[in-house]
């Protein structure tokens, strides 16, 4: 009997501790890191994704629905990155506060200066085009910092008692991200200064924001149309074009098709470096600084011929 009482009391304590925190659920691990940086110690943050997935192609898994049903705030990238699954997760959660337009709904892409917003008509003959612009902004510290205001607004709206803490912490984090962006620019400065043309090609246009913040120019993408595996003919033409243009390295996410990338290297002689696109806590990649170092050092290594 005493043991049952002790178990009940500890469960009650755990719930009370949980109730005193703002429960934030994010779509990606990178947003989870950012919310934790801004919101600690007042937030408990859970990322729905593990960082290894392609966030375009995820199912509305029941476990996601359960986690969102308990959330005070849901933060998403937006810009149609999660359009295939997040609306279903939100509507099935039965949680009115986190529905779009609710005070607990935080779409971080809304305050980011979006790149590559298509001009003119967009339809699926162009591939998997994002009509609102390129959603992969989190890879650039400068652009990730632009998402901070939506997170602060959501946190302050749900937890006004700690609004001042969130605002102050946000300024600190914004400064850290600017410093990180500056550090990236310094690392790539010698390369950028020397480049007479593009030196790098991407498999999919996922690195536009990172390149933009560092002053790197991209040769374009190996994909002819976004989200469409390149045909044999496309591979040949883009490999030869990249080779002739003196491209030094191709960069791709870990999810990009390995067979296609190997074929590209075979045809062009250009090495491909595959990098994580998000934090992967289960694999030990828990800090955004570490992710940035991994990305930028990979690029520098191949463009400068050695680790800086």
């Amino acid at each position: 009997m005493r043991r049952k009482i002790a178990v009940c009391l500890s469960l009650l304590m755990a719930n009370l501790v949980q109730a005193s925190h703002v429960n934030v659920v994010t779509s990606t691990t990178d947003l989870a890191w950012l919310v934790k940086e801004i919101g600690s110690p007042h937030v408990q943050v859970t990322s729905l994704l593990k960082g290894t997935e392609n966030p375009h192609y995820v199912d509305a898994v029941p476990e996601f629905i359960r986690l969102v049903s308990n959330a005070n705030i849901v933060c998403v990238i937006g810009l149609d990155l999660e359009v295939g699954w997040m609306p279903k997760v939100l509507s099935r959660s039965g949680n009115a506060q986190v529905q779009p337009g609710g005070r607990g709904y935080c779409e971080t892409g809304k305050t980011v200066q979006v790149l590559e917003k298509p001009l003119g008509g967009v339809d699926r003959s162009l591939g998997d085009v994002h009509p609102s612009g390129n959603p992969h902004f989190w890879l650039s510290p400068k652009h990730l910092a632009q998402a901070i205001s939506t997170i602060v607004d959501a946190l302050a709206g749900v937890d006004p008692n700690h609004a001042v803490d969130y605002v102050n912490k946000a300024k600190e984090v914004s400064g850290q991200l600017e410093a990180l962006s500056q550090k990236n620019r310094e690392k790539l400065k010698p390369i950028v200064a020397r480049q007479k043309g593009p030196l790098i090609i991407e498999y999919h246009k996922e690195f536009s924001y990172l390149f933009d913040s560092c002053g790197l120019t991209s040769f374009g993408s190996i994909e002819e149309k976004p989200g469409v595996t390149p045909s044999a003919g496309r591979l040949v033409s883009v490999a030869l074009a990249a080779k002739n243009a003196g491209i030094k390295v191709a960069i791709a996410s870990e999810n990009a098709p390995k067979q296609t990338l190997s074929r590209f290297t075979e045809l062009s002689g250009i090495p491909v470096v595959q990098v994580p696109m998000s934090l992967q806590p289960a694999k030990g990649l828990t800090s955004y600084v570490a992710l940035q170092e991994k990305l930028v050092d990979s690029i520098v290594k191949h463009l400068a011929g050695g680790v800086p």
């Binding site: 192609y57 995820v58 199912d59 509305a60 898994v61 029941p62 149609d80 359009v83 295939g84 699954w85 609306p87 279903k88």
Partner: peptide, 11 residues
């Protein structure tokens, strides 16, 4: 085939 709004990725 599907046209229009993005179909939901139900589990």
């Amino acid at each position: 085939f599907f046209l229009g709004a993005h179909p939901a990725h139900d589990f």
